[in-house]
């Protein structure tokens, strides 16, 4: 993939694009993908597709006719349709009430207001950019990612889904259909914080913390770090140190230190590896103190 070319009027052109398809069902979408392998690209919000170009592609499959833009309760789960926009996620009452509102808060931190009206859940997961706000939150809440393909539906745990880039994990004739959130976590305390140079900038580091707190005792803590390295990371050593302990300032400091040691940070233009490590320590501590308030 590389940047799209421009014609002599300064208009972007995607070469060899001859088809624009708008299927009405998931099954039809999969058939369209199978029919011309590698030639057709799924299109959701378009914010990623429109700035990149691929030599092989000559058709777009618009997913906005699939009615996959729901956010609803489904028994023990909250089901989020893949074509729901960031705007829908950030303003959903169900999500604002879920686990301290971590998913809604992450969506609210994506890009800018007009971008959030466009960017979708599925596009965000399929691209899995290092700056993506949602993946670390889904890792923290152990979300389940439902993918539809030629063999029907398949579910991935967040740990599995976020272990490699989706282009390596998923078959080319699949689409991400839905994300399921376990309602058992609905009453957890939680916080999401994005650290970025400006409110519009991509994240340098993001921190998601969740826990139950009863009579000052921490149970089921979850800490996930995003943007510090190519894939989001769970801080299991820090989580183990918190489990079953009486919450205190010292405990939060200890968890911050352990999280810092656990995450193998990498350099990019938004921060050096060592700066990100320092941020992780401070942000984990700060967010733990906040949820304990």
């Amino acid at each position: 993939m590389r940047h799209a070319e421009k014609n002599n009027k300064g208009e972007k052109t995607v070469r060899k694009l001859s088809e624009f398809l708008k299927p009405a069902t998931v099954e039809e979408t999969v058939e369209l993908l199978i029919e011309r392998p590698g030639k057709r690209k799924l299109l959701a919000g378009g914010t990623g597709v429109s700035v990149t170009d691929s030599q092989q592609i000559d058709g777009l499959i618009d997913l906005t006719g699939l009615e996959l833009d729901y956010i609803e309760e489904a028994g023990e789960q909250l089901a989020l349709g893949a074509v729901a926009t960031m705007r829908q996620l950030e303003s959903s009452d169900l999500l604002k009430q879920y686990a301290g509102g971590v998913v809604a808060e992450a969506a609210a931190n994506v890009g800018t207001t007009p971008l959030r009206n466009m960017i979708t859940l599925g596009g965000s997961l399929a691209q899995m950019r290092v700056w993506a706000d949602l993946p670390p939150v889904f890792l923290a809440v152990d979300a389940e990612i439902v993918v539809s393909g030629p063999e029907g539906e398949q579910s991935y745990s967040a740990v599995e889904f976020f272990s490699k880039h989706p282009t390596r994990l998923l078959d080319k004739s699949c689409l991400i259909k839905q994300v399921n959130l376990d309602q058992k976590l609905a009453d957890y305390r939680g916080n999401y914080e994005k650290f970025a140079m400006t409110s519009d900038a991509y994240a340098t580091v993001t921190v998601t913390v969740l826990a139950e707190l009863n009579d000052g005792i921490v149970t089921n803590p979850r800490i996930a770090i995003g943007s510090a390295s190519p894939f989001p990371t769970r801080c299991t050593a820090a989580e183990e140190a918190l489990e079953g302990q009486k919450f205190s300032q010292e405990l939060a400091v200890k968890a911050g230190k352990l999280a810092r040691e656990e995450v193998k940070t990498t350099d990019n233009v938004w921060g050096s590896a060592s700066y990100k490590s320092k941020l992780i320590e401070k942000l984990v501590k700060r967010n733990l103190l906040q949820i304990a308030e």
């Binding site: 624009f20 299109l43 378009g46 914010t47 597709v49 429109s50 700035v51 777009l60 618009d62 906005t64 705007r87 207001t113 007009p114 971008l115 009206n117 466009m118």
Partner: peptide, 16 residues
């Protein structure tokens, strides 16, 4: 504004 909501027309496919 697309159906009343601000969007960025430079990264929006007209067909959509």
């Amino acid at each position: 504004l697309l159906d009343g909501q601000p969007i960025l027309s430079c990264i929006k496919f007209a067909a959509q």
